[in-house]
């Protein structure tokens, strides 16, 4: 009898621990808190424009973070995000025609490029077995160079159709950006329940054991990098819609922010733990943080300092929640 009571108690303790260790819930709570502060400080925070703005500003980073999470789950780092975002952005600002056809054409082109870069990363890491940081650093440099070739200084024009439609609202007030974000979340929930989705977590936790359990570890990693590349391209696409112009250095700030968003979203850099939704919320949190700092009158000079500190704190909190979740001490 008492054994089963103890057992139940143990299980309850375990589920509480897991709840505390759930990064997605934590980041959602942080976002809510930050939003309350924002709403208190900023009179028009709850206006439709302000909300649409929040979604529009957060989406590009959220997409990049979603892609990065896939790679981090396999215990890798993908720096190519900076290059792919920039390359997609300058392409959208230069070679794409206007109208729905142009928008689709652009979408096909940038996702194709993202896929290609992701595939190169995937081959280098999963099959050639180079270190992920090193090989994605190289592809990041190459893609940034290509971005400079397309457009050597900020400028260019993103077609109005893309810039207007994708930052607008549909169905009487729902931001397009929110619809896209929701679509990505749904897609992730589906992917997560496929064999590949499960394998992603397995490979990140222990590649050897995953192999012994019959998982084609290399293919799983390869696909993670490919899909990540597509997400970065989408991020560049949405960034173009937001800024309506091209900038070959657009990706630079993404390197830090993407990883900060992933860390805040509760994804562990040691692999096998975390969630795409958390990372997207993390991106939204970072965007909101900027707005809150701005409304608090903090000089934009110091935004970097805050971002850097938040990033380090996020990693520390993620490590702590990791520890709580797995019940380890010290």
């Amino acid at each position: 009898m008492s054994a089963s009571v103890a057992n139940t108690r143990q299980r309850t303790a375990m589920s509480i621990r897991r709840l505390l260790g759930n990064g997605t819930l934590i980041v959602a709570a942080i976002y809510a808190l930050l939003f309350v502060i924002f709403a208190l400080r900023q009179a028009d925070a709850l206006s439709r424009n302000s909300i649409v703005d929040l979604f529009n500003n957060a989406l590009p980073l959220a997409l990049a973070a979603a892609g990065g999470t896939l790679v981090v789950l396999t215990r890798g780092f993908d720096l190519s995000v900076a290059g792919v975002v920039a390359l997609s952005n300058v392409l959208m600002a230069t070679v794409v025609g206007d109208g729905p056809a142009g928008a689709l054409e652009g979408l096909a082109m940038v996702t194709g490029i993202g896929l290609l870069v992701g595939a190169v990363n995937g081959v280098l890491v999963a099959y050639v077995r180079l270190q992920s940081i090193a090989s994605t650093l190289a592809t990041m440099i190459v893609t940034s160079g290509l971005a400079l070739l397309v457009l050597d200084a900020p400028g260019g024009n993103v077609p109005d159709f893309v810039a207007d439609t994708l930052t607008d609202v549909v169905a009487g007030g729902i931001p397009v950006a929110a619809v896209i974000a929701l679509a990505v979340v749904l897609a992730w929930l589906v992917l997560r329940r496929t064999d590949w989705g499960v394998a992603l977590y397995a490979v990140g936790a222990d590649e050897t054991a995953a192999g012994l359990a019959g998982i084609p570890t290399r293919r799983v990693m390869f696909l993670a990098y490919c899909l990540a590349g597509v997400f970065y391209a989408l991020s560049g696409y949405m960034l173009s819609a937001l800024t309506a112009t091209g900038n070959p250095n657009a990706g630079n700030s993404y390197l830090l922010l993407t990883f900060a968003a992933i860390a805040i979203g509760g994804t562990s850099f040691s692999g096998g733990r975390g969630d795409v939704v958390g990372a997207m919320l993390g991106a939204a949190t970072l965007t909101l943080l900027q707005k809150v700092l701005f409304s608090a009158g903090v000089s934009s000079f110091y935004t970097g300092i805050f971002q850097g500190i938040v990033m380090i704190l996020a990693v520390l909190v993620a490590a702590l929640s990791d520890r709580i979740a797995s019940g380890r001490r010290a």
Partner: peptide
């Protein structure tokens, strides 16, 4: 162009 230099660097 600077772009090519960067590309070559990466390669």
């Amino acid at each position: 162009a600077e772009g090519w230099r960067t590309v070559i660097y990466g390669i």
